[in-house]
Amino acid sequence: MKKILIILSLFLVPNLAEAHNPGQSYLYFSTYEDRIDGDVQAKAQEWNAVLGTNLPKNFTKEDLEAILPQIHEYIRDNLTVRSELGEHPITFVNYDVLNEEGSLGTFSRILFRLDNVTTIPENLEVTYDLFFESDDDHRALLLQAYNWKAGIIDNESVHSAIFSPGSTTQELDLSKATTWNGFISMVKMGIWHIWIGIDHIFFLLALALPAVVTRLPNRKSITEILSQWTGVEKFKPAFWYLVKVVTFFTIAHSITLSLAALGVINLNARIVESIIALSIALAALHNIVPIFKQREWLIAFGFGLFHGFGFAGVLADKGLSGEYMALTLFGFNFGVEVGQLLIILLFFPVLFFMRKTKVYSYSVVIASAALILLSLIWTYERFFDVNIPLRAITGL
């Protein structure tokens, strides 16, 4: 019955998504190798109602600091965390403000750490009795923001339990946390990132376009360039050559991702993103005017080094640093490779089927030219931190 109620609650209570909701406060827990951190988030109206303060709706960090001792005392009196290890007193470590879009105003973030965590317990028994005395309709959501072993990274949307005036004690299950779950979550993150990374996909597309055709020698004029391609005869050699090219890309970005994640090398993000955009142009230009004949793997490897620094920014944004880093890097890189291979498996048969048509040979050049134009626009935008509206280019 309890499981049924939890499932129903996921549908009946609004999901956080990327924003907060009115009439709610939030309790986050982040579980690391040797500690558990927490975070209480609430609006000004909640604090004013229970503390008798006059915190403005859109308050600043300085405004919050003025009433911080009262907030700390109130949380200590109304938030209790226990486990099989005993009670876990709260030590406050920091505070911040979170500006939400729309009419909700600013949320406070009161950050704390649980004491008496000698090992990570299997369950937390959490009693949350904040704000209910002033608002019977108030609800608080309990969330795991981070738990590597449970496969939870940077979670802001999926809640584990709901606190209400009649249900102020809930359990947070940490027993399902395993190294395998964490590794699988990293693989999924790598796959998902390559699928949503349009610049990485375009780079792969630029490399894949000529994989099913061979270039005729000594083509210099525009007419000759447009007719320089002839379709390959066999599927398998062309497919495995493209897999080799993609694998060199993975090897390269694995090297720099590891160096950046471990703090050995750090490059300016603006420069890195600009070079990633420029890599598409060079790969596409190679399709029109050969730079490395039958050595596309050199392009993949060379620019893959910079793509790795870009991937490192993704892990940093997710708060992944230090903990289980070897498995994190291996899982993420493996996921990127799997994501790339799935893309190839999806598109390569189509390319092979079309390879001997005149449309395809012309399409290689036309598509490459389009990729060059697009990547140069991206390079300019990223390097100079500007936005070029598409209608300004297309006239639409």
Rank of each mutant, 00 (worst) to 15 (best):
I271H: 04
M186D: 00
A177Y: 00
L342R: 00
I255Q: 06
F131N: 04
A177T: 00
D129M: 08
S221L: 08
N15D: 12
T250H: 05
I110Q: 14
T250F: 09
H20W: 03
T179E: 15
R355H: 06
N116H: 11
I377T: 13
A312D: 00
S368P: 09
D135F: 02
L68C: 01
L114S: 04
A161E: 10
I198F: 14
F59G: 01
L205M: 13
L327S: 10
E87N: 13
I162V: 14
F131M: 02
A283V: 10
A150D: 12
L124D: 05
S167H: 07
I377F: 10
G335E: 05
A17G: 09
V93H: 00
I184H: 04
S361L: 14
L345P: 06
D96P: 04
Y362K: 11
A316M: 08
V40K: 07
L124G: 04
L285K: 06
G335A: 10
L298C: 07
T80H: 14
L209V: 12
Q170N: 09
N147S: 12
I36W: 04
F59A: 05
G197E: 02
F309W: 09
P56K: 03
L141Q: 11
N181V: 01
W195Y: 06
I196Q: 12
D63R: 11
N58C: 10
P217Y: 00
I275E: 01
L207P: 07
E100Y: 04
F301M: 15
E224F: 13
K293S: 07
V350G: 02
V338F: 07
I343P: 04
Y32M: 05
F334E: 01
E133D: 03
K61L: 13
E381C: 06
E296Y: 10
E273N: 09
F353H: 12
Q340Y: 08
R391E: 15
L10R: 12
T119E: 15
Y128L: 02
N287D: 02
G308K: 09
T169F: 03
E337W: 12
L390Y: 13
I225T: 05
S254L: 15
G197H: 05
A145T: 00
M189R: 13
F249I: 08
F107E: 07
I255T: 10
S83V: 10
F248K: 11
A206S: 11
R270G: 04
S279P: 02
W229C: 01
T168S: 07
L278C: 01
N155K: 09
S167E: 03
L55K: 02
L390G: 14
K188Y: 09
V117H: 06
T230H: 00
P217G: 00
W297R: 02
V50K: 05
G166C: 00
A211K: 09
E33V: 14
S375F: 07
G339P: 05
R219G: 00
F303T: 03
F29H: 01
